[in-house]
Amino acid sequence: MSDASARVADATGNWVDTRAPSWSRPYLRLSRLDRPIGSWLLLMPCWWSAALAAAVAHDVSQLPSVIVLFFIGAFVMRGAGCTWNDITDRDLDARVERTRSRPIPAGQVSVKQAFVFLVAQALVGLAVLLQFNRFAVATGLASLLIVAIYPFMKRITWWPQIVLGLAFSWGALMGFAVVLGRIDAAALALYAGSIAWVIGYDTIYAHQDAEDDALIGIKSTARLFGARTHQALVVLYSLAVVLIGVALVLAGVRWPAWIGLAAFALHLAWQITRLDIKDPARCLRIFKSNRDAGLLLFAGLLSDAVMRAGV
């Protein structure tokens, strides 16, 4: 198989295709470094939580190092999670047009090689986690069960996006665990709001595969909602904004955080108005735009933390 034919359909023309050594490309694709959007989306709740916890503590001294460590950890652990997903889904991926060129079904790496790569990524993630306090380490390890079961959920429930939300939103707890050594009510509200956000944006993403998923019996909220997706997104995104707002109230934030939340909410509203579930390319673009939505909220939370710390 040529390298061009090995590229995943929604990940062409990136640095992995054009600059990475050819031997490394299958592994970089396993970890989705050719499509880093998922890593950014995993990172956003981590950064939100770290900034909000720093605001509660009125101390941003450790925030720069926490931001960097969360960045590394999110990219490495998302890679490990995607590698695990590809191992468990290799037979299903071979039957879906968009995913049949992934490294395992395409024969670029064996299951054994992928598993060794998974372990290597997990060890790097562990090294990052061990930089934090014991409570944060325990909190981080607790997420592994959710990550492990997620790939199997689309076989048994119409709501696999809930389990993805539980996993991808875990960072909303981690920031408080790292900065404050505890999980406050504000962290739980932030976690709940992030879960609603994840369910919404992954529903948009899943519409790319809705037809193939129907043929092979894979369940998703995209198939469940169908033509009612816009209405479902209104509910999910509204719930996300309200719950995150509750977190801000509980944390006693000031005006910069509220501006960040308003910008986040406007971006989500824009997504709903622009979405066409019958246009896979547009679904992908709107899904990717959630990184920008997350950064808008983070900018507000970070500004609030700096203001409250008196820097």
Rank of each mutant, 00 (worst) to 15 (best):
K112R: 14
P256H: 11
F264Q: 07
A20I: 09
Q271P: 07
L126Q: 07
M153A: 10
L275S: 05
G165C: 04
A187V: 03
V235T: 13
P21V: 09
A262T: 12
C82W: 00
A247K: 06
G300W: 09
E211G: 03
W84R: 00
S49V: 02
V242D: 05
G294L: 08
P160C: 13
L284Y: 10
G294E: 11
Q131K: 13
G125S: 12
A240F: 02
A281Q: 15
F264M: 08
A232E: 06
M153S: 03
R282T: 14
V147R: 01
A265R: 06
G165V: 04
D213N: 06
L141Q: 03
D34S: 07
W255S: 14
G226E: 12
R291P: 04
A206R: 01
A196Y: 08
A232R: 13
G73K: 07
A20E: 05
F70D: 03
T12C: 08
V198A: 15
D212W: 03
Q231D: 10
P256F: 09
A251Y: 11
N290V: 08
A20W: 11
A94L: 09
L261Q: 07
T99H: 06
A122G: 15
F135C: 00
M44I: 15
L275V: 04
S194F: 02
V60A: 01
V76T: 14
R254Y: 05
S220Q: 07
